[in-house]
Write a protein that binds this DNA or RNA. Structure first.
Lengths: 240, 240
DNA sequence: CCATAAATGTCGATT
DNA sequence: AATCGACGTTTATGG
């Protein structure tokens, strides 16, 4: 009589586990996806996430499961191993059928001190809020993140005439940003206490089509030199 | 006299190379980012891409470089090793200063047969094209993917009065989708044979801000139950 | 925890 | 090369 014993094991992982194996993968959830048998890298992280990599898609895996999720390993009598990764909050499942394991290593990475970033949009907005004249001569800040029904405007300013100016700030100025500012302007101009409100689209780099659209809508474009602005900020700290 | 010989090596990689090392990482490009010394996983793929992983953050690396890029290894006289990854099309650079290597393995994964996907939005459009009454009572389909100068409208329908209805279908209804439908409506309403055309924004889930904008523009919102619709579809296949 | 906007978004198709 | 839209987007942030 053939033995049909099946072993279930809930797998907990410390650090990173790296498995290179010939495997087949099936995902069912927000979409259905299937990977035929081939040799791939399977990465299991301490947060429980699982990702299956080929050797060519930059950092993006072929399939994955984001945390929180659980990984259980099922071994059939024929020695076939199936990993089933299940999302905790939905019924998404990732099934990895392993034919042959070529590498299986674990390593504890210890604590991650964390990533430090500089040059993101938030910082640009902060710098421009402190130096609104870098956007336009004589501009003064009324309020940062000025609220509207469809979200906050990055900066609301006033020019020397007392006219209201709405400023949308992007790292990269794309058409989307112009559309966004257009929506804000339409709403703000309904407010008789503010109207008329003109718009300025400020970005480190403005795409040609975005500039064309902005100009067509009477929105001014300003390209901002982040490094110079940061320099201006630094110089304001100098003693002279 | 101290030896200051420096060795440069252009590193080519077949398959995947996995290195676990105590390292420091600095990225300079579209932004600046810095990672203090800690133990991390460095993955180098055959396409030249490099990614640095901690043991959380799902599949997204802390730092990375997308192909095309080149990796060169510099060894100083003190034994310190620095990997410099440079983008080919820009001056983005990733510098990995390696203090200690805990693992260094390579493995050729061979060819990837490729991923097969079956998406939800496509299927949702197909189901709604077959059952337009799920969008609105008495609605009938004129054409799926109705062409305009700026791309096809998901569905063009007619209501019982004979009025044209443009339908934009999304899995998640966001402001972008409302903008998209607005552009289509503006174009369609220029066609005297179709005008007036009203719009319906149909999605599995519609974000509050998107709903606000849609209503403000006279666009109706319909949330669609994908599972129920799939059930409806199944029942249409039954023999009775 | 939900909602929203940014992201070194990535990725693919199309112009 | 630039643009546009989708993504199983993921991630961070504010209410």
């Amino acid at each position: 009589m053939a033995c049909r014993e099946v072993c279930h094991a809930r797998v907990a992982c410390v650090g990173v586990r790296l498995v290179i194996a010939r495997c087949q993968v099936d995902y069912a959830g927000r979409l259905s996806a299937h990977l035929p048998v081939a040799t791939r890298l399977i990465m299991v992280k301490a947060d429980g996430s699982v990702s299956i990599h080929s050797d060519d898609r930059a950092y993006k895996p072929l399939n994955w499961m984001t945390p929180p999720c659980t990984l259980s390993e099922t071994t059939g009598a024929d020695g076939g191993v199936v990993w089933t990764v299940s999302a905790v909050k939905s019924d998404d499942t990732l099934r990895i059928t392993i034919e042959e394991v070529l590498l299986d290593v674990r390593h504890d990475l210890g604590p991650e001190p964390g990533l430090v970033k500089d040059g993101v949009e938030r910082r640009l907005q902060q710098l421009l809020a402190e130096h609104p004249s870098a956007i336009g001569a004589g501009l003064s800040l009324v309020r940062r993140e000025y609220p509207t029904a469809i979200g906050p405007v990055d900066l609301l300013c006033r020019d020397p005439d007392g006219t209201s100016v709405a400023v949308e700030i992007k790292r990269r100025g794309d058409i989307d940003g112009v559309e966004q500012l257009t929506r804000y302007l339409e709403l703000l101009n309904r407010d008789p206490l503010l109207a008329p409100v003109r718009g300025i689209f400020a970005a480190q780099e403005i795409r040609p089509q975005a500039r064309t659209l902005a100009v067509d809508r009477g929105i001014a474009c300003v390209t901002v030199d982040y490094e110079a602005l940061r320099g201006t900020d630094d110089s304001s700290l100098r003693l002279f």
